[in-house]
């Protein structure tokens, strides 16, 4: 599914470019959930932006393919149409654009890019209602401008709403647990778990182990200084929680 090989990337303009990823290799097969943990500044968010094509993040070496296709050469919107979805750590406010308009535009833009028919308005509304219900997002909220005036928890639930509506092939959750209380965390995790599918892969980026109690990973990778330095099962996350990054990283180094 997602195959990252020896990926290196820098952030910033040429003269002040800073290497953030330094030969990162990672393979997430379809049907699996992989967690990436790491200390602040390890390159976790950079990885999510490099994979989704944000401006200002330049790949300097290596490759990343989704189902064999080189995604690094694609526009962000093309990657999205191919099925890449990023749940943002800090979802962006879009004043003046209602949630429903935004998501329907996105669904139909993706469908158009894939040569599929548009989703009809009644189908969209029906689906939106179902998804909104499972995430405790009422119809009123979905008419408001995207993320404007939403609480931290509401913003994260709205990310999951978009994910469930767009039905992407590969999900990247960037610190989706940050800013969530325990009830919101459960709601969000339920939404993510509902998306688990033999044909879908997930990368769960997190700083804390807590989220992984609710979204059980198949594998846990430790990211430090721009590369994966340790890979293990779910127990690795528990060890990190207990011994801290210093303990585990010391051993790896």
């Amino acid at each position: 599914m997602l195959k990252i090989t020896n990926l290196s990337a820098t952030v910033g303009e040429a003269a002040e470019a800073k290497g953030i990823l330094n030969g990162l290799t990672l393979d997430v097969p379809a049907g699996e959930v992989h967690a990436i943990m790491g200390p602040n500044g390890a390159g976790k968010s950079t990885l999510s932006y490099v994979l989704t094509g944000r401006n200002g993040y330049d790949v300097t070496g290596g490759s990343a393919t989704l189902n064999g296709e080189d995604i690094l050469a694609m526009d962000p919107e093309t990657r999205a149409a191919k099925g890449m979805f990023l749940s943002f750590q800090y979802p962006v406010e879009i004043p003046g654009v209602p949630v429903m308009t935004f998501v329907r535009t996105a669904i139909n833009a993706q469908r158009k890019a894939r040569g599929e028919d548009e989703m009809s308005a009644p189908d969209f509304i029906k689906r939106s209602r179902e998804v909104g219900k499972t995430l405790n997002l009422n119809a009123e909220m979905l008419k408001r401008p995207v993320n404007v005036g939403f609480s931290g928890g509401e913003k994260k639930r709205l990310e999951i709403y978009q994910m469930m509506m767009l039905e992407p092939k590969f999900l990247i959750l960037d610190e989706t647990d940050s800013g969530l209380d325990i009830d919101a965390l459960k709601t969000v995790a339920d939404g993510v778990n509902a998306m688990r599918d033999p044909s879908r892969g997930m990368l769960v980026i997190t700083h804390y182990q807590r989220l992984l109690d609710y979204i059980k990973p198949d594998k846990v990778h430790v990211l430090a200084k721009g590369r994966i330095i340790k890979t293990g099962g779910p127990d690795l996350a528990l060890r990190l929680e207990k011994e801290g990054y210093d303990g585990v990283l010391g051993e790896a180094a």
Binding site: T52, G53, R54, N55, D75, P76, E77, R79, A80, A81, M84, F85, L86, F88, P91, V92, E93, I94, P95, G96, V97, F102, V103, T105, A106, I107, A109, Q110, A113, P145, Q162, L166
Partner: peptide, 23 residues
Amino acid sequence: QLFYLRQRGIPERQARGMLTEAF
């Protein structure tokens, strides 16, 4: 904002139009 829209699959031109119209 522009990246957020594009990450959801909205082509750049359309995304710029949406943001400008909203503005």
